[in-house]
Computed example of a mutant assay.
Amino acid sequence: MTESTPGPVEDREIPADAPITLLPVLALLLLGLMWGYNWVVMKAVLVDVSAAWFAALRTVLPALLLIAILPLAGKRFRPPPLFYALPIGLFQTAGFVGFMMWALEAGGGAGETAVIVFTMPLWLTLMAHFALHERITPVQLLAIAVAIPGLVLLISPWETSLALAAVGLALASGIGWALGAIWQKRYYHRYQPDLLNLTAWQMLYGGLLLAGIALWVEPFAFDPTPNFFWALIYNVLLAGALGWLLWVYSLHHLPTWVAGFGVLLVPGIGVLSAWLVLGETPGPVKQVGIGLILSALLIITLYQRRQRHHARRLAAR
């Protein structure tokens, strides 16, 4: 997010056939717009501050703000068990956000990086097969088969202008996100964490790790331009604290499959924003690649909806 973007959380399950009301849908749409446009904001701020330091700032500051909000939101202030939250912070915040920012700094386009990072559900599907013993179904194989050529077309390795480092870092970001989600799913039933509490503390742990890396790499420095302060405010208040509150609200009032559609807005808005604001116009080949990847993510989302609905029907018998 982009804010430590949410993985598959089982915090409070809403039935798949529950009525869908307007206000949570509007919150989800606003969230998709804010997190999607943030790819442009993050790309633009790198002329004023290094990727390492901005990654640290955009995780530590909103984490502290969320922790301060916890009592006001009626949530438990005490952090979740370190064994559970620390690896999530390592992978889903430090890995996801750090590699993402470095990919943008290494020359990755905002829109293309967003799409590559959001291949995360595909890596999650493969990892869950081995780590969680969740069998890969034919529908999931279809999604992977659609996404792989799309990824090749988007990366276009035959182009001499290919930024291999940016591509590798973007893939590492998505894989880190998936690893955090695997850990979260594997131990969720043992700890039963509150989503907002877990989000705040794991983000702080990951952000402190990013701050340590930034200190080790270079002294803290930034160019105090309006662009820098706008990006910081956007990431701390809008995409950060407000974004997570909107996500928790949406997840608690909408079926998970609907929330999944909202997350799919992020790479699409990222591509559109990069085109309109930064002038990043992907060629026809890359456009086909983006379309295939987004189609694969849509297949995964629709499949998850069907599986959840089927599981609830069986449980009701």
Rank of each mutant, 00 (worst) to 15 (best):
T93R: 13
A94K: 02
G98E: 03
G98K: 01
F99E: 02
M100I: 06
M100H: 13
M101W: 09
M101E: 09
A103Q: 07
L104A: 09
E105F: 12
E105I: 00
A106C: 02
A106D: 06
G109H: 03
G109A: 08
A110T: 06
E112A: 13
E112Y: 08
T113K: 09
T113D: 05
A114M: 11
A114E: 05
A114G: 13
V117D: 10
V117P: 14
F118A: 01
F118R: 00
F118V: 04
T119W: 13
M120R: 04
W123Q: 14
W123K: 06
T125D: 01
T125N: 05
L126A: 13
H129G: 03
F130S: 02
L132H: 07
R135M: 04
I136G: 04
T137Y: 07
P138I: 03
P138V: 03
V139G: 00
L142P: 05
A143Y: 12
I144S: 00
I148E: 06
I148V: 14
G150P: 07
I155P: 02
S156P: 04
S156K: 06
S156C: 01
W158F: 12
E159M: 09
T160S: 12
A163Y: 14
L164K: 02
L164M: 08
A165C: 13
V167R: 01
G168V: 02
L169I: 11
A172R: 03
S173A: 14
G174H: 10
I175S: 05
G176K: 08
W177G: 04
W177N: 07
L179Y: 02
L179V: 06
G180Q: 07
G180P: 02
A181N: 05
I182Y: 05
W183T: 08
Q184H: 13
K185G: 09
Y187R: 02
Y188D: 03
Y188G: 01
Y188T: 05
Y188W: 15
R190D: 14
Y191T: 05
Q192H: 12
D194Q: 10
L198Q: 06
Y205C: 07
G206P: 12
G207T: 00
A211C: 13
G212T: 11
I213R: 01
L215A: 09
P219C: 11
F220Y: 09
A221R: 15
A221H: 15
F222L: 15
P224Q: 15
P224H: 15
N227A: 12
N227E: 13
W230A: 00
A231M: 06
A231D: 10
L232I: 08
L232P: 04
I233Y: 15
I233A: 14
N235G: 03
V236W: 08
L237T: 00
L237V: 11
